[in-house]
């Protein structure tokens, strides 16, 4: 099962390397990892999607990194989760209309149209991206670029499980 954790780290050089090195060394599997600024410019937020049952160890090991300030695991359904992707599909003149119709239903934006392909941008919850991809598969996916996941807790304090360092 995949778990989503938010890791607030000090915004210092090399902090991403520290986190990924720890995951590699301990044999934890990262499904995706994103990092970016937060409302506080001394801190960065990482959103890590991890496989596997060792959540307690993963969280404790993250806390052991000196630059880790806070780790939060989201209970399923308690976070707003988003991904973005760019997907280029085969779209010859014959099927172009059909593909664009489908894309409209999914709120996928056509961001590049070529002779034989269309490139869509899709943003949303991970399941939506997965469903769109499945649909486009039948037309033939030429290339795909996908971001990692970002997440914020929903504004309901009681819904999230916070793991303190001690």
């Amino acid at each position: 099962m995949k778990h989503v954790i938010a890791v607030i780290v000090e915004n210092k050089p090399g902090v991403l390397a520290r986190v990924s090195s720890m995951f590699a060394r301990r044999g934890f599997n990262i499904h995706s990892l994103t990092v970016g600024p937060t409302e506080d410019d001394t801190m960065s937020r990482m959103t890590v999607v991890v496989d596997g049952p060792e959540m307690e160890q993963i969280i404790k090991q993250l806390y052991k990194l000196v630059h880790t300030v806070k780790v939060t695991e989201f209970e399923p359904g308690t976070a707003i989760e988003r991904e973005i992707m760019l997907v280029r599909v085969n779209a010859d003149a014959k099927r172009r209309g059909e593909i664009l119709d489908a894309a409209r239903v999914w709120e996928a934006r056509a961001v590049d149209v070529g002779v034989a392909t269309i490139t869509f941008e899709v943003t949303g919850p991970p399941e939506r991206l997965a469903d769109f991809l499945q649909l486009m598969n039948s037309y033939g996916i030429v290339s795909l670029a996908k971001s990692g996941r970002i997440a914020l807790p929903r504004d309901q304090k009681s819904n999230k499980k916070q793991l303190k360092s001690a």
Partner: peptide, 8 residues
């Protein structure tokens, strides 16, 4: 000043 380092 290490906001993330608070050994119990």
């Amino acid at each position: 000043r290490l906001p993330g380092y608070r050994p119990a």
